[in-house]
Amino acid sequence: MTDFHLFSFAAGDDPIHAALPPAQAFFAMDDYSLGPLDDESKREAFWRDMLRGYEEDDPEERATAGFSPWRELQSRLLQAPAGRVYMWHAANAADYVFVRMACHWLAQTGHALFAIDIPEEGYVLPTHAKLEQLCAGAAQISPAQRLQWAQEFVAMAARPEMLRELDDAGHLQCREMHVHDDFMLACCPTQWQLAARLVGETMAKACPPHCLGDVFWNMRLQCLIDAGLIEADGERVGLRNYRVRRRQSVPGN
Rank of each mutant, 00 (worst) to 15 (best):
Q248R: 12
L198Y: 05
N241C: 09
S41D: 13
G228N: 13
L194A: 15
F4P: 00
Q151L: 02
R146V: 01
N218G: 12
W217T: 07
L78R: 15
H128T: 12
N253I: 13
K205W: 04
Y54P: 00
G238V: 12
A195D: 05
V154C: 02
H89N: 04
C223M: 12
L163S: 09
L239W: 03
Y123K: 07
Y86H: 10
G53W: 00
R164Y: 00
E61V: 10
G228K: 10
Q173K: 11
C174W: 01
A155E: 09
F67N: 09
G170K: 03
S75K: 14
K130H: 10
H17L: 14
A94G: 11
R43K: 13
G238A: 13
A157G: 07
G252E: 14
V215T: 14
L51G: 05
L51D: 02
D39G: 01
W88S: 06
A102K: 05
Q173C: 07
F9I: 14
I116C: 12
Q133L: 03
P189R: 08
F114C: 08
Q108R: 10
Q145N: 05
I116H: 00
H89F: 03
T127R: 06
Q222M: 15
E201H: 09
Q140G: 04
I118A: 06
N92R: 15
Y86D: 10
E161P: 00
E235Q: 11
W217V: 04
Q24D: 09
A157N: 02
D117M: 06
E72T: 15
G252N: 13
Y86M: 13
E152T: 04
A80K: 04
A45M: 00
D167I: 13
D14G: 11
N253L: 06
D57K: 14
F27N: 10
T2R: 02
S75Q: 14
A93H: 12
K42Y: 00
Y242T: 12
D3C: 03
H104L: 03
Q193P: 04
G53V: 07
M203I: 13
L198H: 12
G35I: 02
G53K: 04
R43P: 01
H104M: 02
H128N: 10
W70T: 13
E56L: 14
G213N: 15
G213M: 05
L185F: 06
R84Y: 02
L194C: 11
R71M: 07
A186R: 06
V215D: 02
F26S: 08
K42M: 04
C188H: 06
M50I: 07
A65H: 07
F46M: 02
P208W: 07
A206W: 08
T190M: 09
A25Q: 05
L37P: 00
A107T: 14
L163M: 10
R245W: 08
S142Y: 01
E132S: 12
R52I: 06
N253Q: 15
L229S: 06
A186E: 06
A93D: 11
W149H: 02
L34W: 05
F216Q: 05
Q148P: 00
C223D: 08
A129P: 00
M177E: 08
E121Q: 06
H171L: 07
A157I: 01
Q145F: 01
A93F: 08
A102T: 15
I116F: 05
I16F: 10
A18I: 05
E40W: 00
